[in-house]
Design a protein around this nucleic acid. Sequence first.
DNA 1: CGAAATTTTGATCACGTTCAACTTCAGTGG
DNA 2: CCACTGAAGTTGAACGTGATCAAAATTTCG
Lengths: 267, 267
Amino acid sequence: MAVPLRLVEIPADNHPLVTRLCRHVLLSDAEIARLRSGFERRLTIKNKRDVLLEGYKSHSLHVVVSGFAVRYKLLADGKRQVLSIILPGDIIGMPCAFFQPSIYSVTTLCEVTVDVVSLARFLELCREVPSLAVGMLWYSVHELATYGDHIIDVGRRSPLERIAHFLLEMHSRLRLAGCAAESSFEMPLSQEIIGDLLGLSAPHVNRMLHELKSERLISIFRRQVTFKDVEGLWLLAQFEPLPSPAIATIPSAGNGQMDRPRSSRLA
Amino acid sequence: MAVPLRLVEIPADNHPLVTRLCRHVLLSDAEIARLRSGFERRLTIKNKRDVLLEGYKSHSLHVVVSGFAVRYKLLADGKRQVLSIILPGDIIGMPCAFFQPSIYSVTTLCEVTVDVVSLARFLELCREVPSLAVGMLWYSVHELATYGDHIIDVGRRSPLERIAHFLLEMHSRLRLAGCAAESSFEMPLSQEIIGDLLGLSAPHVNRMLHELKSERLISIFRRQVTFKDVEGLWLLAQFEPLPSPAIATIPSAGNGQMDRPRSSRLA
DNA sequence: CGAAATTTTGATCACGTTCAACTTCAGTGG
DNA sequence: CCACTGAAGTTGAACGTGATCAAAATTTCG
């Protein structure tokens, strides 16, 4: 009685953004072609270059095809908060390029190649291709959920939990982007950046990483992180991957109101 | 030489969501009617009721017409992280209702009235009315920026800065929703909730609030917060309201690449 | 191979949590 | 109208955590 919940047609097109949008929305070959035709040029950006700087104007979206980057903000006292790690399929300039001047900065962590499309052109495309618009809505909702988890991390989790949670999330995102093995991955971030991401000092990140090692939950060699005890990590971090989308690609009517409880605790 | 930057037609329709969408996108009367016809019913929800519970399914969006609510998550150890404060014009179930089961909970802070629309119907509407889709994209981008600021608050600002920043942001959002005077507002949150929002303990929120008072930056009477020194608050919190959208409602082509610097510091 | 970036380590100390008690306030029913 | 009740705000003392700073060890990369 195995019921296939979602039968998603993965188009032959292997652009990471297309792959991502197609998780939520059906795109015909013609529509995909429309989208691709919107890309004005493909750029390769060297390591440690600013793609976007807070305070500068930018009128373009940069869709990451390969490579990694960080979105961050510098405070007046020199502190830095990293908002998110940008992976292939992510859009640099979401939300930055929607404001003038940009509200955050983005810097590459390695050589990055991007497809460039002007924001105006992109919004036009969204008007013309409804599936693209709805796909982008799903994209933002996902991003929102990711930011939400980040708030929880920084606001209420212990440093050890934070690191564990971060490693699991990073792995699962890298997995989706096709950049990670089943239980290990190449960490693209220095401990300093992890600190700035999670609101910790670099030395403390180091200590916590070592604690995870000595608890035999992970091991690290070079920049390879390997999960030794995924179960234990999930438990420690209370990791919950995003549940399936409420509406699958192949339409199927939801039937009613509230169902399945799961946990119900109150302060 | 006063140049009016944006001439936005505010339609006679006074639904707070419509007002909000029209900040970014032109909606004809017919399109507004379409949207309104999607609302299945109007509900009034009593104070301290759960609109959404983590772990339960929900297939509806609830658009807040009046009243306040909190979006939050409970952790296993009983800690709570508040993700955001929901004001009129906000959509409960963004992002929660897009996942099954819901990833966060939402509770009312007073009597709240909402317009209900099923997610499926709403996404259909987005397909049919391109301006609605693009408007919702802007909506999410705004929300994303708000979450981003929240991450910065919790991750890298001192408790005092956090509180100051929070008060300013709350005021400016209430202002847009038409629920605040020029330099004072009725705070809809207990200190405990503020603590859970900003990652602080309730007693510490209390102390910081008192410090702001003794610095003559604010005053509080009952639940009225009054800014005594907006300048000073902005400075302390390094508050920066969201810059104008990169593309105004009335189309006007942006001309090029990067302009105006503003600050450029490096670690 | 040399220089720079990153990781590691240790010692000190300020900050913010925790917990508990007490006060004030708001809402309700007698 | 007042007494009663529970919620919210206020205060203090003690403690533990994680920041900070600096220096050394190691890795990475030009």
